[in-house]
Design a protein around this nucleic acid. Structure first.
Lengths: 134, 134
DNA sequence: ATAGTTCATCGTCGATTAACGATATGAATG
DNA sequence: CATTCATATCGTTAATCGACGATGAACTAT
């Protein structure tokens, strides 16, 4: 039996699996968060929310410089992943960060970088046969 | 003038931009790395490379359980992003991690989590009007 | 030279993403 | 009850992704 990785809609947990190693579920969660972070506009939004500390209305649209509907979509993705939170007030929505949601990927990266004790840089290791491009 | 975010092919730096804030380039790089991490199979591959320390041949294919060409594609993406390195030997290729490449996103996450000093968890803040589904 | 092994690449297909404009919602106000 | 403002959603389009099988290198070893 094989696993089929479907294009996972960005949304928290996920049904269930079984296979190979054992931390498939965790891997999926990490991939999910990474997917939410995989667009510069969304990184920009997060940075904005970080700088303004408290939440922000649709000023985000002005800063990002994309259409309102597009920004709204990016916000939806970030919300769905749990990275940001939206609090409705007037006709406005105040967004703010939910940093704890980033722990899975942060821990994962920590794992990788811990193993990196004075590791040689790319150039010193890479490619034996240079004619094989990339 | 507006920025058009194209579907960026996963590949290191990027031509050039100018606009809004100022760390657009850094944001793009972070998004790039995040995109490389945005698939569970790729997380799995990274985890595998981490556990085996030294490099590995196409045993990866067996572990991941996807077609050889598919795994090769995932490896290509990871390579293109700079996260892994491939060293050609026999007819084989030994892959290994290049942790330093993860610093940009790791630092970014660090920034976010530093701002998280005893922050309240999601449930205690979120959504004012519950009938508005997600 | 010829086989064999291991990867990479190509071509294809369906699904997803990202962008936009246009339209719908929803709460507070007049 | 009709307006209005700020968002969300819808419908569309083009581009990208993920998966696969089949084919094409590259290098060993026979």
């Amino acid at each position: 039996m094989k696993i089929i990785y479907m294009h996972a809609p960005i949304q928290a947990p996920s049904p269930a699996k079984d296979q190979p190693v054992d931390n498939i579920l965790e891997d999926e969660d990490i991939a999910l968060i990474a997917k939410a972070l995989s667009h510069p506009a969304r990184i920009q939004i997060i940075r904005l929310l970080l700088s303004k500390k408290t939440c922000i209305g649709g000023d985000i649209v002005d800063v990002i410089g994309l259409a309102q509907s597009t920004v709204s979509e990016h916000l939806r993705i970030l919300k769905a992943s749990g990275i940001i939170i939206g609090e409705i007030t007037h006709p406005r929505v105040c967004y703010s960060l939910n940093p704890p949601r980033l722990h899975p990927i942060k821990d994962f990266l920590g794992l990788l970088l811990d193993s990196d004790a004075g590791a040689p840089d790319v150039e010193s290791v890479c490619w034996v046969s240079p004619e094989k491009k990339q």
